[in-house]
Amino acid sequence: MSKDMNSQAGGAAKEGKIIGGYLVPNKPHALLAPEKSPGWQSLHDSYAKVREEIEASDADLLILFSTRWVSIIGHQIQADPTPEYWVVDEDFHELGTMHYKLRMNPEFAETYQQCATERGLHARTVAYHGFPIDVGSIAALQLLNPDNRIPACIVSCNVYSDRAETLVLGKAALDAVKKSGRKAIVVGVSALSNRMFTEFIDPASDHIHSLKDDEWNRKLLELLEAGRLEDVSQLSREFSRQANGDSKLKAIWWMAAAMGQNNDYRGTVFDYQAVWGTGAALVGLVPSPGAGGGLEYDEDDSNYFHGDRNVIATAAKADKTDKKS
């Protein structure tokens, strides 16, 4: 049992819960250069509204899934209690350096790692001086939680994981929240449509890359505003095909799984703007029983991840056996 779980011991441990979720952009423009573009300034200002909502809640943990932290070996969970360093966006380096000092909850990170492992996932915590926290997470935390009042946890986005594995990762987050006794807010750090202008533009003229991407983004936001998170999760593949969704919209899969796979939320679209052509939205989802419509599931559900190594290992063993014979 981790320290985080033990912290609830002494009396009857109170089960934690997820009290809300937010979808936020994955680029740093609203933090680093809001004045360069009306849209980026609007996002910057709208972050303040989200921040106020979070501050008004009694959340004591933020859990971020960021598409800007890519992993290969399973799922990595940040466990350095006070990561302090700097990063420069690899593409938008002209916007300046992001110096950061953040506050993580290493005990929760351990709990999350254990819960993920129990569901068959390969997961590990990381805590290394100089580790480059991704720009999406830094921007989100500095805009949503600038004084580090609420400790955070960041989990990576595995480049190979698809829907099933990402759902299991989301469910493991909920397991960990329940065990920890925390009142958590989940944050998906992700673009919507992810077609970027591939040249240098005047930031003041920034707009969504195409009308089609814009229309798809608005459709998704319409559903989210109605609180229909699970419906958006079910639509994510189609959206990604049509509008080049950021990382298949894994952040939505993860959020939906962590938040209970339903449509029962009060949704708020705080803002929707373009960042270098991509869809950048600030959306809030607060559980609101009975708010959502019916569910129509087209996708399978998964509770446990069985991995792929054994399949390959079997093939490799067979190959070795063949060679011997």
Binding site: W69, V70, S71, I72, I73, V126, Y128, H129, G130, F131
Partner: peptide, 14 residues
């Protein structure tokens, strides 16, 4: 100059 920590394999490359 500085410290490069691989975000994917931080256990191997710092």
């Amino acid at each position: 100059e500085g410290l490069s920590v691989d975000p994917i394999f931080p256990n191997l490359f710092r």
